[in-house]
Design a protein around this nucleic acid. Sequence first.
DNA 1: TTGGTATATCGGGAAAAGTCGATATATATT
DNA 2: AATATATATCGACTTTTCCCGATATACCAA
Lengths: 100, 100
Amino acid sequence: MDQVEIFKALSNKTRLQILNWLKEPAVNFPEQLNPDFENTGVCVGQIQMKAGLSQSTISEYLSILQRANLVTATRVGQWTYYKRSEEGIKMLNKIISTEL
Amino acid sequence: MDQVEIFKALSNKTRLQILNWLKEPAVNFPEQLNPDFENTGVCVGQIQMKAGLSQSTISEYLSILQRANLVTATRVGQWTYYKRSEEGIKMLNKIISTEL
DNA sequence: TTGGTATATCGGGAAAAGTCGATATATATT
DNA sequence: AATATATATCGACTTTTCCCGATATACCAA
């Protein structure tokens, strides 16, 4: 993954917020229906409602974050659950402290 | 300073390269004339030549990096010397490990 | 299989970023 | 004061990003 792409993914207020919200799903998405969402993540619709942007935009943003390895996606039935990729974020930390 | 602006500053290959080159000025800018450049930094012209983009573009890029607190500038005579702001970069590390 | 819901993808218009050449400004030299 | 050099700023054009609505796809339930 290209460093530039990672930083581009982070160059947007909404995408940074999403990453932050996913730190504490239970706090930020109290209306979550999926009982296992702490493990699986939060579905697109919930994130979209909280962000207040269109469905297509949020879907797009989530895939940008995914391509940058900042989140992972799990499809369960008709829902796609997204959660932070702590591994990818750790990698980013390493990049910044060594390569930057 | 807005986080988004910092990440935008880093979302460009040339700007990332500049930041890297400035880690080792003596290695990357051997034709440097200023005898004190290890302290003061490297002047715009040298960076421009190495990057191979126009003078105006590099001047612009350096001020983008400066606004993001990733480099500092010192004017000496007709030259402006730029160097990494290790402090700003440390701050970025903190942002990423705590706020992201 | 028909319809309903969740997400992804496509096409597009507006705004921002990339990049240039030309010009302006600041400084130094004569 | 006149000229030369280094850098900054301006105006313009192209490419990319932002964000939308419309449509397609995937899955589920009756």
